[in-house]
């Protein structure tokens, strides 16, 4: 499993003529956290959608190891081991928190008892065990986000894609999330892709960064390398540094 990687090769996505992604290539290795950053509307979420099958790339390929998964349905891709969270939380609001999490492992074929057991264990790791029997819709925003991440993890994925996991969280919550996420790649042998606008979180959490702007890659590499790239500073970090 360790040599499996998620490879996105020259993926383009078009929405009725508008090119939202333009030949973006990136690789996520098992055991690493890759940060995907870029200004609003640069195509970050579209890239995640293209990987998980919500939108179909017009060209390019998405592969796990040697296996191409580009044309598969979202369900198949999820079962292949790529799970995700959403910018707008999408939980099963009227199911309990445990059931939300268990749904993923059930879909993978676990028994109800085993799925519930796994769900409860995962919830403990994320300090959510007190909420297990509550309806997911009744949680506060930060907890919903964490439940969504736990639900994605319950499928025992090889790759976890997190779309703004810390959005709407306060400092304490996002620090706690950062600590939990940082341990995941090693403890669960998985690769993580994180989108977030919180640069401090991204810089502390990620091993590598990939920057896109207007659908194109404008930089990639280690956190330090990316920070100093003139194109990146201009397109993204520059503006954020001058803002209050």
């Amino acid at each position: 499993m360790s040599n499996r990687r998620l490879r996105i090769n020259e993926v383009s996505v078009e929405f009725s003529g508008l090119r939202a992604l333009d030949k973006v290539s990136l690789t996520i290795e098992t055991g690493e956290i890759l940060g995907l950053i870029g200004p609003n509307g640069s195509g970050k979420t579209t890239l995640v959608n293209a990987i998980t099958g919500q939108v179909r790339p017009s060209t390019g390929a998405v592969c796990i190891g040697d296996e191409e998964i580009t044309a598969l349905s979202p369900r198949r891709i999820a079962l292949k081991g790529i799970t995700r969270s959403f910018q707008q939380v999408r939980l099963f609001n009227d199911l309990s928190v445990v059931e939300n999490v268990a749904a993923t492992s059930l879909a993978k074929g676990l028994s109800l008892r085993a799925a519930r057991q796994t769900a409860r264990e995962l919830l403990v790791d994320f300090n959510l065990s007190d909420f297990g029997d509550m309806a997911a819709g009744a949680l506060n925003h930060g907890d919903k986000r964490r439940v969504e991440i736990v639900r994605a993890l319950a499928g025992d994925p090889s790759f976890l894609l997190l779309d703004e996991p810390a959005a709407g969280m306060n400092e304490t919550e996002s620090d706690a999330l950062l600590a939990t996420l940082a341990e995941l790649p090693a403890s669960r042998a998985l690769g993580i892709l994180v989108i977030d606008h919180d640069m401090s979180l991204i810089m502390r959490l990620c091993h590598r960064l990939h920057v896109i702007s207007s659908g194109k890659t404008i930089g990639e590499g280690s956190v330090e390398t990316v920070r100093s790239l003139p194109a990146v500073v201009e397109a993204y970090l520059g503006t954020s540094e001058t803002s209050p």
Binding site: P74, A78, R90, F92, A103, A107, K108
Partner: peptide, 15 residues
């Protein structure tokens, strides 16, 4: 119940 709660999401978790 998951499908009734959020059909798209149910598909996405693999149901």
């Amino acid at each position: 119940r998951a499908a009734a709660s959020n059909f798209t999401m149910a598909r996405m978790v693999g149901i």
